[in-house]
C-alpha cells in the first residue's frame, strides 16, 4: 500500500515535469521571433554584419538602442503613417460600432418581415473569401473618384480606406449573439415602464453588451493596424504603418541594415503588444468565443 502511494506520487511528479518541459519548449518556440527581433534591433550594424554565427545574447555596452531606433524611425515617416493609421482605425471603428449596434439590435430584438432570411443571407457572406469583394471594391472606389493612379487627395484616400470598412457582418453576428443573451424579461420590464426601443438600446442593451463592444473596438482597430493589401491598392501615396514597414526595407540585395529593419518591425509590433497587455481579457474572450460559434 505504502509503496503504491509513493509510486503514484513519483509518477505524478514525473508527469508534471514532462508537461512543463513541453509547455516551456513551445513557449520558447513562440517567443523566439520576438526575441530575435529585439536582440537584432539592439545590435550595431557592424555586429550584425560581421558576427557569423551571431551571438545569442548581447552585452549591455554593445546595445545600440538609440541609434537603431532613431534611424529606423527616420528611415520612413512613421509618425505620419501611425497618425494616419490611428485616424483610419478611429473612423472605421466608430462607423462599424454604430452600424453593427443598430443592425444587431434589429436582428436581436425587432420583429420584421424577412428577418430570418436576411440574417441567413448576411452570415452566408462570411463564407466568401474577401478577395472576391476586393476586386469590385477597387473598381467602385475608382469609380467614385476616391482613387486614381494619377493621384488622390488625403480626403479621397481616407474615404477609400474607411468606407468599405464601416460595417462588418462578422461583428454584427458577434454582437447579435451578445444582445440575444440579454433575457427577454428585461425588455418586457422596460416596456412596462414605458421605455422606448431607442432608450432601451442605449440604456440597457449597450451597457450590458459593453464587453463585447469593447472587444469589437479592439479587434477592429488592431485589424486596421495590420492592414496591408487594401491600403496598398487604393492609397498608394498615403500608406499605413504596415505598408510603410515593408516598403522601407524591401531591398534584399546589398547592404540591408538588419538592426534598423528589426527596430522598425518592433516599432510597428509594439503598439499591438501594449494594447494586448492592457486589454488581454477582452481580446482573448472575443477570440475564444468566435471559435465556438459554429
Amino acid at each position: 500500500m505504502q509503496n503504491t502511494i509513493r509510486e503514484t506520487r513519483i509518477r505524478t511528479i514525473l508527469f508534471k515535469v514532462l508537461v512543463y518541459t513541453f509547455l516551456v519548449g513551445f513557449a520558447i518556440f513562440v517567443l523566439i521571433p520576438f526575441y530575435w527581433m529585439v536582440l537584432t534591433s539592439l545590435k550595431s550594424f557592424q555586429q550584425v554584419r560581421t558576427e557569423v554565427p551571431p551571438s545569442l545574447i548581447i552585452g549591455l555596452k554593445d546595445i545600440r538602442f538609440l541609434e537603431n531606433y532613431a534611424s529606423a524611425w527616420n528611415a520612413a515617416p512613421y509618425y505620419q503613417y501611425m497618425l494616419r493609421t490611428v485616424a483610419v482605425a478611429a473612423i472605421s471603428t466608430t462607423g462599424t460600432i454604430f452600424t453593427t449596434i443598430f443592425a444587431a439590435f434589429a436582428f436581436a430584438r425587432l420583429n420584421f418581415k424577412g428577418r430570418d432570411f436576411l440574417f441567413l443571407a448576411l452570415i452566408s457572406t462570411m463564407m466568401i473569401p474577401g478577395e472576391m469583394f476586393v476586386i469590385t471594391n477597387y473598381i467602385t472606389v475608382s469609380n467614385l473618384g476616391w482613387y486614381s493612379p494619377l493621384g488622390q487627395t488625403q480626403t479621397e484616400a481616407f474615404l477609400a480606406l474607411t468606407m468599405p470598412f464601416m460595417t462588418s457582418v462578422f461583428y454584427l453576428f458577434f454582437l447579435r449573439q451578445a444582445f440575444k443573451q440579454i433575457p427577454d424579461e428585461l425588455y418586457l420590464a422596460a416596456k412596462v415602464d414605458g421605455t422606448s426601443d431607442w432608450k432601451y438600446l442605449w440604456k440597457i442593451m449597450v451597457p450590458i453588451a459593453s464587453p463585447t463592444i469593447i472587444t469589437i473596438v479592439i479587434l477592429n482597430a488592431m485589424g486596421t493596424w495590420s492592414a496591408y493589401i487594401w491600403p496598398k491598392l487604393v492609397a498608394t501615396e498615403y500608406p499605413l504603418v504596415t505598408n510603410g514597414l515593408r516598403e522601407a526595407y524591401q531591398d534584399f540585395f546589398g547592404m540591408v541594415n538588419y538592426s534598423q529593419q528589426m527596430a522598425a518591425a518592433l516599432i510597428v509590433t509594439l503598439p499591438l503588444l501594449i494594447v494586448f497587455m492592457f486589454l488581454k481579457k477582452y481580446i482573448m474572450r472575443g477570440v475564444s468565443r468566435s471559435g465556438i460559434k459554429g
Binding site: 433575457p183 424579461e185 450590458i208
Partner: peptide
C-alpha cells in the same frame, strides 16, 4: 419570475 433587474 427572474426579476429582470438591469445588471449594470
Amino acid at each position: 419570475q427572474n426579476y429582470a433587474l438591469y445588471p449594470h
